[in-house]
Design a protein around this nucleic acid. Structure first.
Lengths: 165, 165
DNA sequence: CTATAAACTTACGTTAACGTAAGAATCAGT
DNA sequence: ACTGATTCTTACGTTAACGTAAGTTTATAG
């Protein structure tokens, strides 16, 4: 499991660590095609020495990619992610779009808060259900093997440890 | 904004509240097509008096639909949701699949916990960024209007109130 | 300098999750 | 029983987010 801060250097000497497209792809469990696609739709940028050379990525690009993939796991579409990521690109000294940027940022933050709350609700519901499920099993006492009883006890312990955060 | 516990009754007398397909669709901001599709792929069931009559839904179906839509907002695919929802259908007295059911349930619960943690991380990152953004704006002191200054102060207050949960 | 290996471009294919339109059947109110 | 509103089935269309294949270039190791 070795990472790939790849070729000794990109311009000359050694600047910052650079990643190849398949290096990043492997690291995040995606394909190069996906990364190129994100560039195609304007979500990500790459750096090349010449217009036809291979793509290289620095740690900032890598962070951005990580953010994209994280967002995807929360159900954001690439279009929505573009909107969010754009917030990180606005120049704070260019006061023209500051107000809109702040409004958008706060809006997204509030959305995230809502999602967290909803997820916590969902978790509680699942926990309640699991506990009542375990309850019924236990009442139906009797013909389980010892290992099954141990398994059930373990399950209950795990679920209860999650209860109430 | 009136709900639609629709026709007086479905079989005879009055049992539990029943919902029409467009009633539910309106309530949740989706289309009847979506609800039929969920039934088509086995995520949802409907109840009809005759095989050709209109679909009706009880409160249990409604809860299930709510769960589906909630799951979708968290990035679950319909296939994944089918797996999760299936857990709610297992009979606890049929000990055949109990072990697997419990394992799956705990797995999904752990996934949810991970998602919550990741979301909290994301929120913190956005907050940090927003604060440094606001910091830079303030250093660039001077030529903002009074309302702009007030707006910025308000934004900072909002963001800080979210900080550290 | 050559020979693999890795990456490039171009372009058509695929899948999930519905949208949409047409024509027939069912329901609710008069 | 009639009629306008709802719903039904059937079936083809659409979009996002990549997958995949072919043929070409660019990079790296010996």
């Amino acid at each position: 499991m070795t990472l790939k801060p790849v070729p000794k250097d990109s311009p000359k000497g050694e600047s910052s660590p650079m990643y190849t497209i398949s290096g990043l792809a492997d690291e995040f469990g995606i394909t190069p095609r996906t990364i190129r696609y994100y560039e195609e739709v304007g979500l990500l940028t790459s750096h090349r020495s010449t217009p036809t050379s291979h793509r290289l990525y620095d740690s900032r690009d890598r962070g951005r990619l990580k953010l994209i993939l994280r967002g995807k796991r929360f159900g954001y579409s690439l279009a929505e992610l573009a909107e969010i990521l754009h917030l990180y690109d606005v120049d704070p000294t260019q006061k023209k779009q500051i107000k809109r940027t702040l409004e958008m940022g706060i809006k997204h933050l509030e959305e995230i808060n809502e999602k967290i709350e909803e997820l916590e609700e969902l978790r509680e519901e699942m926990i309640e259900f699991a506990l009542s499920f375990l309850e019924i099993i236990s009442e139906e006492k009797g013909d389980e093997s010892d290992e099954m009883k141990a398994f059930i006890a373990g399950a209950r312990a795990v679920v209860e440890s999650m209860h109430g955060k």
